[in-house]
Design a protein around this nucleic acid. Sequence first.
DNA 1: CCCGTTTTGTAGGGATCGCTACGGAAATAA
DNA 2: TTATTTCCGTAGCGATCCCTACAAAACGGG
Lengths: 203, 203
Amino acid sequence: MGARGRPRGFDRAAALEKAMEVFWARGYAGASMAELTEAMGINPPSLYAAFGSKEELFKEAVGLYAATDDGCTLTMLEGDLSTRDSIAAMLMASARSCMRPDKPSGCFLMLGATNGGPETDAAQAYLCDRRRDMGARIRARLARGIADGELPPGLDLDRVTAYFATVIKGMSIEARDGADMETLAGVARSAMLGWDAITSTQA
Amino acid sequence: MGARGRPRGFDRAAALEKAMEVFWARGYAGASMAELTEAMGINPPSLYAAFGSKEELFKEAVGLYAATDDGCTLTMLEGDLSTRDSIAAMLMASARSCMRPDKPSGCFLMLGATNGGPETDAAQAYLCDRRRDMGARIRARLARGIADGELPPGLDLDRVTAYFATVIKGMSIEARDGADMETLAGVARSAMLGWDAITSTQA
DNA sequence: CCCGTTTTGTAGGGATCGCTACGGAAATAA
DNA sequence: TTATTTCCGTAGCGATCCCTACAAAACGGG
């Protein structure tokens, strides 16, 4: 009785964090249950009792990542900075997020499930949705820039959104290929150098 | 006697092309031997006799891809165009390469082996080397631009190279997320809008 | 026609995959 | 202490992984 809400014998949050790091480094398909249980310090039955399945564990890990390691990236869009400074800050935050010490290089949302067999489709779709959501937030910030008079009405929001989303996505692969923080920061700065032309209706 | 150089009973080149498409769509780890042999129209023993192992088949498939579907991307750097036009043409070629009809979206070199367990390390490293080679070619083209007087001496070649490499890499994820050709073309154009500032020593 | 060589197809080996049934330990209450 | 409940660790499920041993079929020369 009352066993449902009873606290488990192990630290669920800590175990989830460990699982996140394994998924982050290996990807959904590449992370085996053996490696996950080993890193989490629990046995398979405990994992399934607490998280249901590998897929649900993955989704929870993605949620944790978005709320912690990748949290600052999108929050940069919600402050009082100008539109331009917001985007620049987002790019820099993304670069930093790709290069956390003692963590896998690159963004989990970008690299966590890029390919695989049919059993990975759900994980891929889930990450794809997350990335689409990221794009929607960038677009919303740009739209606010138009409303605030910082950007011209009639600006092609889809194009500008796709450009900055592409830069962020590319940084993750660049990071996993071994780029250092200075390199990624240079990419972020370079991507902003065409701001005036990019956010023009002439483009 | 003379069996070594004897032509095999099936079309090796056609089978390799089919294998390339499976690897391209599924990634190294996600492509099972069952799916590969099915697509290639041969049985496992024939595959191993002709290609040696899954890993060697993958490397041959990557080589074929680089020589065909992705061939035009880097050849854009070797023509008579100005440095600026060469880079712009490369970006557009890359966008087109990510959106070939009846082929998987995104570049095989970017998405073919992003993550996985230890058994995928060799494939990952192989693709990473290919990407590094791509960066080296971009850098060489920029260096030629300096030699030709089109770009300023003292330009930070590493930064500019990393920027354009990042855009190309990002386009592949963008493509796999469902972007259309118009979107990728807009990204390519946007990425060039800051050219003068990006290729300045002041940046 | 028969034989020797090559290629193909079947069937399966050894390992690992995600996942779960079950028996014993620990904890709680009387 | 005993009875009962809750949890955990071992062991193993069926399926699939990459790869290969073996035998039947196809080919070419006498």
